[in-house]
Simulated assay, not measured.
Amino acid sequence: MSALVVAGLYTHETNLRVEGFPLPYYPACFPFDGISASHAGVGLNVSVALARQGHEVRFASLIGQDETGAALRHALPGLGLDPRWLSDAESATSQSVILVAPDGTRQIHCDLKSLQSCAYPSAATPGLLDDAALAVVCNINFARPLLAEAHRRGIPIATDVHALSNFDDAYNHDFMAAADILFLSDEALPCSPEQAIEALRRRFAPAVIVVGLGAKGALLSERGQALLHVPAAAPQGVVNTVGAGDALFSAFIDQHLRGHAAPVALRNAVLYAGIKVAHNGATEGLMDREAFAQMLAARPV
Rank of each mutant, 00 (worst) to 15 (best):
G243F: 00
A179Q: 08
Q236N: 12
A170Q: 14
D33E: 15
L128M: 09
V208A: 06
C29G: 12
A49L: 10
V264E: 15
A51E: 08
V100W: 09
A234H: 13
L9F: 08
Q116M: 11
V137P: 01
A123T: 10
D169K: 05
P206A: 05
V264H: 12
D33Q: 15
S185M: 09
S2F: 06
Q195E: 15
A51W: 04
A273K: 02
H162S: 14
L296I: 09
S91R: 01
A293Q: 15
V18A: 10
L146D: 02
L164H: 07
I157K: 01
E187Y: 12
H279L: 02
A124V: 02
F167S: 05
N45C: 07
P206W: 03
A124Q: 15
L219H: 04
G281I: 03
A101D: 09
A123C: 09
A143W: 00
A297I: 04
H151R: 15
D66E: 10
A232F: 07
D88T: 14
V211A: 04
P24T: 08
G54V: 07
R58C: 02
R106L: 09
N45T: 06
A232H: 07
G154M: 10
V238P: 01
R84A: 14
R201V: 03
A101Y: 11
S47M: 03
V48K: 04
A124W: 05
D103Q: 10
S2G: 11
A282G: 09
F249R: 04
P27F: 06
C138N: 13
I155W: 06
H173E: 13
A265Q: 02
P83N: 07
C138W: 00
I140T: 11
S47V: 02
R152F: 04
S2D: 13
I63R: 00
P145G: 04
L182D: 05
V42D: 13
E290P: 00
A273Y: 02
N280T: 14
D174R: 01
S192D: 13
P145T: 01
Q65W: 07
H39T: 05
N280A: 15
G281F: 06
E284G: 00
D186C: 09
I108R: 10
N139C: 12
R201W: 04
V264F: 08
P77T: 08
D254E: 04
V161R: 06
L248K: 02
H173D: 15
A251K: 02
E198W: 08
A119E: 12
F292H: 13
N268M: 13
A158Q: 08
A40L: 03
S114W: 00
G237I: 05
P22I: 03
E284Y: 07
V161G: 08
I155H: 06
R267F: 01
G41F: 02
I35W: 04
H74W: 13
L296R: 14
I108N: 08
F59C: 12
A261N: 09
V6A: 02
G54I: 10
A148M: 11
L257S: 07
C110V: 13
G34H: 11
V270T: 11
S185Q: 11
R84W: 10
G69L: 01
L81W: 03
L128P: 02
